[in-house]
Amino acid sequence: MHAIALEATNAVVTLDVALPGIVWGWIITMNMWAKSIGTGVIFILFYLLKKYPNEAAYLRFPLTVVSIVFIHLFLFFTVIDLHQMFRFWHIFFHPHWMSAITVGAWMATIYVGLIFFLAYASFIKKDNALFDKILIWTVVVGIPVTLYTAGLMAESSARELWQMPTESAQMILAALLAGSATTLLIGGKLPYEAKRDLAIILGLSAFGAFILYMSEYIFGAMKAEEVAATLEFIKGNGEYTTMFWIGQIFAFIVPMVLVALSVTNKSTSLLALASVSALAGLWVSKHVWLVIPQLLSMS
């Protein structure tokens, strides 16, 4: 918000109702963060099984379990954020297909079915061919599951900061970043080449996401008054300036540097640190971007 009144008008709000607090807070951040891991590991597993079918074969079941856990965390936080959580079933019986929430809920439901099918194929049936067939469809459905939140943010007409296609790109990059970081932490037995590939995915995802944030940070204010006012919260002495930069440093800058050092020195010892930093920083950067447009008065 502007710190001082415009000299020409000196307009000051002197009586108004109390403004609502943050509507979508840390619960929605948890939702987006957990979803990034839940779909990201499946994207990464697909890549690893194509490129390193023998070396990565042992990851079929562990990464499926990780996906199940984090997608259910995502669903849990989605439901508990509803003010009427026991009416969640209305989405299935009164669906409104123009809403990204509806599309996302249906896609996530199909996705959950598919990952349980993957668990069945890998743990009970022990059928790798079946697993790999289902995995293709899981990846296909995983894409809209990853992107629907971006659609939701784009449909939030009041929040000028959240633009398409930037948010779509951010969601996909977040999934690749979270998926590669999680797989690096779990896939200790992977050969160096596979770890190097994951490190490069991690580093490039961090680089891409950082470029998008910085582009908005620098140029966003030149396009729209509301974006300029929103970005004031992460510039100078803004309420979220420190948190914004903590997010950027841990999610993107530290992983980029550590990945560069690892690849240059052909060492994987720094990758665990890069992964933890990326996952922690991703939560923070997503949270700041979620909250700051809600600090503006809409009326």
Binding site: L19, P20, V23, W24, D81, L82, H83, Q84, M85, R87, F88, H90, I91, S99, I101, L152, E155, S156, S157, A158, R159, Q294, S297, M298, S299
Partner: peptide
């Protein structure tokens, strides 16, 4: 269902 999507979408608060 109280998802507050409308609260986020309304440009007029």
């Amino acid at each position: 269902i109280g998802c507050a999507g409308c609260v986020m979408a309304c440009p007029y608060g």
